[in-house]
Amino acid sequence: MSPDKKQSKSYSVETRQLNLWYGDFQALINVSVKVVDGLITGLIGPSGCGKTTLLRCFNRVNERYGNVTTTGEVEILGKNIYDADVSLPELRKNVGMVFQRPNPLPISVYENIIFGLRVHSERRIRKRSDTDNIVETALREVHLWDDLKDQLKVKATTLQLEQQQKLCIARLLPLKPRVILMDEPCSALDAKGTRTVEELMLELAGQYTILIVTHNMAQARRVSNECIFMLLGEIIEHSHTEDLFLTPQNSKTADYIEGRYG
């Protein structure tokens, strides 16, 4: 079960006895999991098992729905994010999120990328040349600079889906997050888009801890270092990706990767 073979591993996300209810329905049951710093961790499981819910606990966007109750602890960068004194903007600066449907804001490409900086330091007046640099760096990191350098004023919602999704990754980078959460980031993209986003993830790993939810087991094998299998709100198995796919310890995991659940 336990993925830490070496003692030296550090964890960027650690949950203890995490439970979550939507009204009366319990969507997460006693989730205790440790996510290794700087690696890509895949989160797989059949539809409705709580992958999205778990991911959305890590930046507390679940709380946007009024009927959510959470118990237990989630420690990110050494602090329980469910403590009363945690500042949500600060948390979300450290933990970025990429959504299933690309959701750039309906403003220009340029403004999308510095949106994060603007909301986090409202009062600081930035020099145009500084923000220009930030935008260029972020776009270069996601390989959009050459495509978009003449379209920085274009409304981001008019780009192709693949570009939109990469932009959604790029806009996290100026905030220098430690963890990036991705919820099926390629499910709206075609094969080529999926490939380029996967390559991007592999490049970003190391600098960032990446947690990716995916329905696509081939994708989980391609990109993740570790993999977590969930079923009906519980963690069934968590190990190195090859181990999980080649020698699953739990029969339910084996059933799932052989395609016996949705």
Binding site: N59, V61, R64, L88, P89, E90, L91, R92, K93, G96, M97, F99, R101, N103, P104, L105, P106, F115, G116, V119, H120, C168, R171, L172, L175
Partner: peptide, 11 residues
């Protein structure tokens, strides 16, 4: 989704 995107960026 616009509100969610902005809030997830810390707005």
């Amino acid at each position: 989704s616009y509100r969610e995107a902005a809030e997830a960026l810390g707005a």
